[in-house]
Design a protein around this nucleic acid. Sequence first.
DNA 1: TATGAATGAGGTTTCATTCAT
DNA 2: GATGAATGAAACCTCATTCAT
Lengths: 211, 211, 211, 211
Amino acid sequence: MGQSAREEPKWRRRAESRPDEILDAALVTFEKDGFDAARVEDVAKKAKLSKAGVYLYFDSKDAILRGLIEREVAPVARNLRAVAEAGMDDPAGALQRVAAAFTALVNDKRKLAVPRIVLSVAARYPDIAQYYRENVLEQGLSAIVALIEAGVAKGVFRPCDPGIAARMLFGPIFVHGLYTHFLHGDPGPLSPAERVKAHTDILLKGLLASR
Amino acid sequence: MGQSAREEPKWRRRAESRPDEILDAALVTFEKDGFDAARVEDVAKKAKLSKAGVYLYFDSKDAILRGLIEREVAPVARNLRAVAEAGMDDPAGALQRVAAAFTALVNDKRKLAVPRIVLSVAARYPDIAQYYRENVLEQGLSAIVALIEAGVAKGVFRPCDPGIAARMLFGPIFVHGLYTHFLHGDPGPLSPAERVKAHTDILLKGLLASR
Amino acid sequence: MGQSAREEPKWRRRAESRPDEILDAALVTFEKDGFDAARVEDVAKKAKLSKAGVYLYFDSKDAILRGLIEREVAPVARNLRAVAEAGMDDPAGALQRVAAAFTALVNDKRKLAVPRIVLSVAARYPDIAQYYRENVLEQGLSAIVALIEAGVAKGVFRPCDPGIAARMLFGPIFVHGLYTHFLHGDPGPLSPAERVKAHTDILLKGLLASR
Amino acid sequence: MGQSAREEPKWRRRAESRPDEILDAALVTFEKDGFDAARVEDVAKKAKLSKAGVYLYFDSKDAILRGLIEREVAPVARNLRAVAEAGMDDPAGALQRVAAAFTALVNDKRKLAVPRIVLSVAARYPDIAQYYRENVLEQGLSAIVALIEAGVAKGVFRPCDPGIAARMLFGPIFVHGLYTHFLHGDPGPLSPAERVKAHTDILLKGLLASR
DNA sequence: TATGAATGAGGTTTCATTCAT
DNA sequence: GATGAATGAAACCTCATTCAT
């Protein structure tokens, strides 16, 4: 109240929040332009920092990318595992919930940008590819695989290859995200929830032990 | 002896084959390094041409990419359509054959490189994204959609959203390709044929009208 | 106990010793990396100060260099003059003592670093070159020149060009220092004292009036 | 004749001479500004080339330096050795001729720039220091050492440490060069030839076996 | 007095593209 | 048709220096 003349120091002394601000800016910039075409200066500008300022917090452009991946990756993996593990005694229901969670994730263009970037730089930064694979993909896959195996063991699901089943869960959602977000493909008339339902209807019918 | 006047022309007129040789080289180079990191000089070297020589056949680096996409794209789309259309009266069998064809395609790392590159430059070259979407993705999707719809009409398949079903066909195969080729993920123990079978088993069970 | 109000001042008022600490640090850093490659931050770190702290005491990087030269230079010149002047009545003995003193000086890599730095920045900072020349070189030379001239006047030395003689005293010692310290040349088997002796033996035999 | 309008193609097609032109330009630029302060762009400009053009012939700024050292070094070493070796049967005369040759060398500011540069970057590029030491200094020294030893063996010179004697030959000349060229010290009234004479007079008197 | 945070200016290097031959 | 030579434009990164606290 009354101190309206000093609303915001505008900058200074926010070292703690800087790395995150830079990563936020980088995510947006990399998503828009791709890693190579993105200029560090643009990241800096969006983070309201000078170019040199960025280098106070990250050693190099690819260190920013690494930081970004590391920050973005953990929650995704954690999220998927949690949903999967929470439903081990109701595999069919859990499958639907995982599909819904993954759909929500993929619907967020910013979140989907990360695997796209990883994919495009994987050849040059194998460590990034490896990190992503081990910390997201294998985590997610193994969680679903466990879920499917549990379902099979319970007799809820027919015997099947759980890796294939897992890909049948994630694959369609992921490609739909790429198609609509990055290639501007027509998302179709269904709402996300309807898509999840249509998808899991078919998938579960394919998986469930008859009667 | 005596043919001293015609020792060996310094260069040969092979203008006709040149563009293709350049595109071959570009495909390999782009696949390895990504579009941005790939240097025109490397493409030239691999095509056994000077850097300037490349510019006799292509106006710019992204023109090469456009040429590449145009060349690679048509056969893929045509192929998938053909398989799908040839099986309109046996939708289930056709589905399996499409899955097999698409698996074969995706197994070829070079072929899979094209969509990966498209994805990574889509933001900067919207025309490329559009071209790819219209000429490959929508072609492929619509062919499968038609197939599914035919199946539903015939009563072979249950009523379902054909777009979703199509993504359930392509998605798992595509992500498996990305995962194994570009992120060096474990391809798992199944042979391609076994993967196709496991995949279509589940998918068809999910789609087929009971009884 | 009980002195909680004075636990430890975060920083101490040691303004007086600071400039010297900075110069010490600068000497080491400049010696190791050269003036250009040395970073102010490294000087600061070695002086246990923040980068900004250095600027409390010196206006700029080259001001540090100037300060360094000023501090290092006076004692050297004074020392050489003193030795020379103390021996005006025994020119031959004084020559030997000057050689010994200069050898001791040059043996100290840190001390030798100063002229090396001066030499490398002389073109950009003519004032530094001038300062060094006037306050060290000309001082040292003139002292020796006076010594030689005294010797000649006394009849102890043959008539000779005293500037040349002076260079014959300093030159060999100086280049030996450069060679061994900065180019890692083999210092040879002789001890410093033996080098001084061998050197002055020849030099004196060359200078002394026969009989 | 009559084609006065096309005097000089101005550039193009002189790849062969380029490296040398660049090294010439670099020598001048490095001599003037020192290695660090010299900008590649200035070297380029002086060589009448674009900045990028320089990189067609040299991989990096320090590659230019290396090239420069390599080019400048061989003739110097060869020259000194030749003079020394040509006079093995007249050591005293040869010593004078070596002194004269070295004086001529050092009188050339451009030539003297090389060791100055080497000295200033030695810490950062140890290979350059080593190269210079092995290919110039040790060559020169060993040639003179051999000469002195020959003189001693012949009974022309008194027994003495030849390394010291060699430094007494080179040292004074070298420091005089540094002093006058780079610190703008007063070269004194003597002509180069007179300096050589004054120098070798003393040195030879110091070295020669009496009668 | 002391410093963490910030930046402007500039340097090296790269590369798509052009052009004379 | 083919290329060696050349360059403009830009990108990454560094560092001396400043300033609010």
